[in-house]
């Protein structure tokens, strides 16, 4: 065999090995229907006795996936729940402190994601995440001798939205790699391959998302156009990771205060306030452009009122 043929063979083998050596991402045979998005989720209020801040860690994990650009998956944290691990219409994150093996879960399983789906439509009906509190100690700050909540939760949420495990060692830096270690935190950050995975499942843009603010206008027409004759209201949503005093005001385009929409302390989670086009005196305002200002962001949002 000539040297050239031998070289071509080696290069081919090499490329073949490299090209087949790892998956960018792997999909489960199911995903959420668009009509079910945003997907609500709850966290069992007992949490874990091992640390505080586990709720915020889980919320951050969901946000990591949600904030990937070029995809439309969205989650809404609905608050604490007393529900346990079962098919009950609640997408739940829960720690199991005893009886882990009763489900047939092995002791070395750090956490398990379970997905209920309709096999004829491949649409997810419910997804739950259980954390092994019986055999592992947990931390919300990456302590070296414990399991990091955000690290593990970010991986399990990948399953929650429809991604499968990556098992090849060349994928060990990906969030969806199936093995985790004590004190590991690298899965908190999604790799480019993980991001490609959620984009493959839910391609497209989800709309404006800046910082902690989500704005959605319930309209008869597109964009932030409120038709008061049809009784439209503007819905203003915001998400908090900790309790905060929130002020939301509506101004005219000239800067005149129209409505003191919110001025209160709101707890951790998602909240909504609504404007029906009335000022502080209770009178309907005129058609035109109005500005929404919130005290925790510099961005100013516009609403157009028509009659």
């Amino acid at each position: 065999m000539s040297f050239g043929k031998r070289l071509a063979g080696i290069v081919t083998i090499f490329l073949g090995i490299v090209c087949n050596y790892s998956f960018a991402f792997k999909l489960l045979p199911c995903k959420w229907a668009r009509s079910d998005i945003p997907v609500d989720y709850y966290i069992n209020y007992y949490g874990t006795p091992d640390c505080s801040g586990e709720n915020a860690a889980i919320i951050s994990s969901f946000n990591s996936w949600e904030n990937v650009s070029g995809q439309y998956m969205d989650f809404t944290y609905k608050g604490p729940s007393s529900e346990t691990y079962a098919l009950d219409g609640t997408n739940l994150c829960v720690w199991i402190e005893s009886g882990w093996n009763l489900y047939g879960f092995s002791s070395n399983a750090i956490a398990i994601a379970t997905v209920w789906y309709n096999e004829s439509t491949n649409e997810i009906i419910e997804a739950d995440i259980t954390f092994n509190g019986e055999h592992f100690e947990w931390s919300s700050s990456g302590e070296s001798n414990k399991m990091d909540v955000q690290n593990i939760a970010t991986h399990e949420i990948g399953h929650f939205l429809g991604l499968d495990d990556l098992k090849d060692s060349s994928d060990s830096e990906a969030t969806m790699f199936w093995i985790a270690g004590w004190g590991e935190t690298k899965k908190r950050t999604l790799s480019p391959n993980d991001q490609d995975g959620i984009r493959a499942l839910y391609p497209g843009s989800s709309g404006p998302k800046t910082g902690e603010f989500i704005m959605e206008a319930k309209v008869s027409l597109i964009n932030n156009l409120i038709d008061l004759s049809k009784g439209d209201t503007c819905s203003i949503g915001f998400r908090l990771f900790e309790s905060k005093r929130i002020k939301i005001n509506i101004y005219t385009i000239d800067g005149e205060l129209v409505k003191d929409l919110a001025d209160d302390v709101y707890g951790e989670g998602d909240h909504w306030v609504f404007w029906s086009g009335k000022n502080d005196a209770g009178n309907k305002v005129g058609a035109g452009i109005y500005l929404v200002k919130l005290n925790f962001t510099d961005k100013i949002y516009k609403i157009a009122l028509v009659k």
């Binding site: 489960l28 047939g104 379970t114 997905v115 209920w116 789906y117 309709n118 096999e119 495990d165 199936w178």
Partner: peptide
């Protein structure tokens, strides 16, 4: 062997890693 997960009718419970 008894393990969590399976299919009844059209409804499947998939336990990742099982």
């Amino acid at each position: 062997i008894r393990q969590l997960g399976g299919k009844v009718g059209d409804l499947r419970l998939k336990v990742i890693g099982m």
